[in-house]
């Protein structure tokens, strides 16, 4: 078992541990947010924001804030730049969607492509100037656990904790808004702030998740655990618990598979999440079939 060898070796453990800490933090946070993302049908906006992060990475690369050996201050700087880019993208999407003639779908599509293009050009320019190859497309798109240092892991842990605190603090308003956005303000719920809060939390979690899961897969982490849990339970507290459980199990399966098979960890984690989702759906179908059969017999 290569996994046990790696974990037994102090050097390898030192390389993997920050990634594992980041992974656990991301899994818990994204699993909680995923429930709201799925129920509010916000997965495409998540896609748009995560691709906008690519533009932010380009800007950070031009400023020299890239690579695995960033100091704590540099890691915070890089995080802030990418986060600002994501928030700006979310605001541009909201502004475009509010105007006549542009649907939210179109706005997200345009922002997504524009940010990716900008990111590609800036990264190309930055690495050409440095005369280096850069982090490689695969690690940007699909993540690289070895590129996660302790600075990143600490930033990820703090941000995740902050997201969880805000989610808990705002839970009643967020749930009322998410359940019935049209009527909730008539009952004293704030009309706009829950959406803004959720968008900021989404941006924060996407930027945090990118290091491990990459630009493309960060969105998946914000959808699959929630979808899996919703296929398995009709009670909100259970759904959140199952979502967190599914994300953590997927993280373990994905990381072990990644070490054993030497596959990209982000892809393995998301692959495990997809597998769990498929199993949950199949179990749901089997349950429905069983219930229909029992009714027919009765």
């Amino acid at each position: 078992m290569r996994t046990l060898e790696y974990l037994g070796d102090p050097i390898m453990r030192g390389l993997f541990l920050p990634g594992i800490v980041t992974g656990v933090a991301i899994a818990i946070v994204c699993a909680c947010l995923a429930v709201l993302v799925v129920l509010k049908r916000m997965s495409f906006i998540g896609q748009g924001v995560s691709h906008a992060a690519f533009g932010g990475m380009g800007v950070a690369a031009v400023l020299g804030l890239t690579g695995a050996s960033l100091s704590a201050a540099q890691a915070v700087g890089q995080f802030s730049i990418i986060l600002s880019f994501c928030l700006a993208a979310a605001m541009i999407v909201a502004w475009m969607s509010a105007r006549r003639g542009t649907s939210a779908d179109t706005a997200i599509g345009i922002v997504l492509v524009a940010a990716m293009t900008l990111g590609a050009i800036l990264m190309h320019a930055a690495f050409k100037r440095q005369g280096s190859q850069g982090p490689g497309w695969e690690s940007v798109l699909f993540g690289a656990i070895l590129s996660v240092g302790w600075s990143d892991a600490i930033v990820a842990a703090i941000v995740s904790l902050a997201i969880l605190v805000v989610l808990w603090w705002e839970r009643r308003k967020l749930i009322f808004w998410a359940f019935d956005e049209t009527s909730a303000p008539a009952f004293g719920a704030p009309p706009r702030s829950p959406r803004i809060v959720l968008m900021v939390l989404l941006c924060l979690s996407i930027v945090t998740a990118m290091k491990l899961a990459g630009v493309v897969l960060a969105t998946a982490v914000l959808v699959l655990p929630g979808a899996t849990a919703l296929a398995m339970s009709k009670r909100l507290s259970h759904v959140i618990a199952i979502s967190v459980g599914a994300a953590l199990v997927s993280l373990v399966i994905g990381l072990v598979a990644s070490m054993e098979l030497d596959w990209p960890p982000g892809a393995c984690i998301v692959g495990a999440m997809t597998l769990l989702y498929a199993l949950a759906r199949l179990a749901g179908l089997a349950r429905e079939g069983g219930m229909a059969g029992a009714r027919a017999e009765a």
Binding site: K40, R172, F176, F179, T182, L236
Partner: peptide, 18 residues
Amino acid sequence: VDAELAFPLSVRQVVTMP
């Protein structure tokens, strides 16, 4: 009713919301 009826909430939870 524009509410997201797929939400995993019981009727009592919905009535308690306000």
